[in-house]
Amino acid sequence: MAQTKKIALYMVIVFVLYTIITSPDRAADLVQIGFEGISSAAKGVGAFMTALVS
């Protein structure tokens, strides 16, 4: 089982590197979208916590 996880992790890393090398503009767009999603989620949690305290 551990060997399977290790192989899957290596495959994901190779895929990410391949994507970055072959299409850096698209990879940058995906990273930006990911960070915007994380930021939006953090703002939502902050608003929720503020509403609980108020």
Rank of each mutant, 00 (worst) to 15 (best):
M1C: 07
M1P: 11
M1T: 11
A2D: 13
A2C: 08
Q3N: 14
Q3M: 15
T4N: 13
T4Q: 11
T4W: 07
K5C: 04
K6W: 09
I7G: 04
I7F: 07
A8T: 07
L9Q: 15
L9M: 12
Y10V: 04
Y10C: 08
M11G: 07
M11R: 08
M11K: 06
M11Y: 07
M11F: 06
V12Y: 10
V12R: 10
I13N: 04
I13H: 03
V14N: 09
F15K: 08
V16I: 14
V16D: 05
V16R: 08
L17S: 08
Y18N: 03
Y18R: 08
Y18C: 09
T19S: 13
T19G: 04
T19F: 10
I20W: 09
I21H: 14
I21Q: 14
I21F: 15
I21C: 12
I21E: 15
T22K: 14
S23Q: 14
P24K: 10
P24T: 05
D25Q: 14
R26C: 06
R26Y: 11
A27Q: 06
A27L: 07
A28P: 03
A28V: 14
A28G: 15
D29R: 14
D29I: 15
D29K: 15
D29C: 07
L30G: 07
L30A: 13
L30P: 00
L30C: 09
L30M: 15
V31K: 03
V31N: 02
V31H: 01
Q32N: 10
Q32R: 12
Q32C: 03
Q32M: 12
I33Q: 03
I33T: 13
G34V: 11
G34S: 06
F35S: 05
F35Q: 09
F35M: 13
F35V: 14
F35E: 15
E36H: 07
E36D: 12
G37K: 07
G37Y: 09
G37F: 12
G37R: 09
G37A: 06
G37S: 06
G37C: 05
I38K: 01
I38E: 04
I38F: 05
S39Q: 13
S39A: 15
S39F: 09
S40G: 04
S40A: 13
S40D: 07
A41S: 08
A41M: 11
A41D: 07
A42Y: 06
A42I: 10
K43D: 10
K43G: 08
G44N: 00
G44F: 02
G44H: 02
G44E: 05
G44R: 00
G44P: 01
V45I: 15
V45G: 05
V45P: 00
G46Q: 03
G46F: 07
G46N: 11
G46R: 01
F48V: 01
M49G: 00
M49L: 09
T50S: 04
T50I: 03
T50G: 03
T50M: 02
L52Q: 01
L52W: 01
L52R: 02
L52D: 00
V53Y: 00
V53L: 02
V53G: 01
S54L: 03
S54D: 05
S54G: 08
